[in-house]
């Protein structure tokens, strides 16, 4: 197919990788926006979710925010922010939109994670005289950790996707390669840009899955327990739940 051949030619042409419109520069912008926005949204959403989950209030809020995040089109928010007075402030409209759409998965997953901690375990910890702070730090957070990390992964993929869309209103990132390709009616460039974006999203997802495997404290403990008993530990229940996130 000529499209495949042209795409290969585009991707292997050194000139497309260097310069202000080159892949490396756009990738740098993309990664910078992703890391900054993910950090901001984690700093905003996680403490709130952990505290709400600890006191057991605001469940409706967590669910509603997640539903609202699904119903409001990312593209619309990006354009609305661009046309608002904020639009003249460089990357700020993009950053705000990215943070807004990263918060729902973070909030919902962390909240659910905190609430799903076995109530008996919490009661036992209280009975041992743990303070609220100790309870969060030593019991609830470690047990909620896998779901919190799932939320961070979902948010990270979401941010990568939303950053791509931010190219439509003129933001930076790899999406610019796609939009420029459409403007030039250069299908090879469009497909190349799309392949790069998809690869980045999958890499981010894969990296987080690997980190989850490495860090999950419960998994590690199960493995140790396995070794001690010499048998297979209780098999993890297979969850067939929809991922808490949306493609953007």
């Amino acid at each position: 197919m000529s499209v495949l051949a042209n795409t290969w030619t585009w991707l292997t042409t050194g000139a497309h990788w260097s310069g202000a419109d080159g892949v490396w520069h756009r990738l740098g912008e993309h990664l910078f926006l992703t890391v900054v926005c993910l950090a901001i949204s984690c700093a905003v959403a996680l403490p709130v979710a952990v505290l709400l989950g600890h006191v057991g209030k605001g469940g409706a809020l967590a669910v509603n925010i997640s539903n609202a995040g699904r119903a409001v089109p990312t593209f619309a928010v990006l354009v609305l922010l661009l046309l608002s007075p904020l639009g003249t402030h460089g990357s700020w409209p993009t950053i705000i939109a990215l943070v807004l759409f990263a918060i729902p998965p973070l909030l919902t997953n962390a909240y659910v994670g905190m609430r799903e901690v076995d109530r008996d375990v919490v009661e036992a910890a209280r009975g041992m005289g743990m303070t609220g702070r100790q309870l969060i730090g030593r019991v609830e957070l470690p047990l909620a950790f896998p779901l919190i990390l799932t939320g961070v992964r979902t948010a990270a993929v979401q941010v990568v996707a939303t950053t791509t869309l931010a190219a439509l209103p003129g933001g930076g990132g790899l999406g610019r390669i796609i939009t420029a390709g459409f403007r030039l009616t250069d299908t090879a460039q469009v497909v190349s840009g799309a392949l790069l974006v998809a690869a980045l999203a999958l890499l981010v997802e894969g990296a987080f899955v690997a980190v989850e495997r490495l860090l999950d404290p419960r998994r590690r403990r199960t493995r140790i327990a396995d070794r001690k008993t010499g048998g297979r530990g209780p098999a993890a229940p297979e969850k067939v739940l929809p991922p808490v996130g949306n493609p953007a």
């Binding site: 990568v160 996707a161 791509t164 190219a167 796609i178 469009v190 840009g193 999203a201 493609p247 953007a248």
Partner: peptide
């Protein structure tokens, strides 16, 4: 299907254009 879900929409549509 999980992998497909990860692909950003702009990239998904672009890949289907050819």
């Amino acid at each position: 299907t999980t992998i497909l879900y990860t692909v950003p929409s702009l990239a998904m549509f672009s890949l289907l254009v050819p």
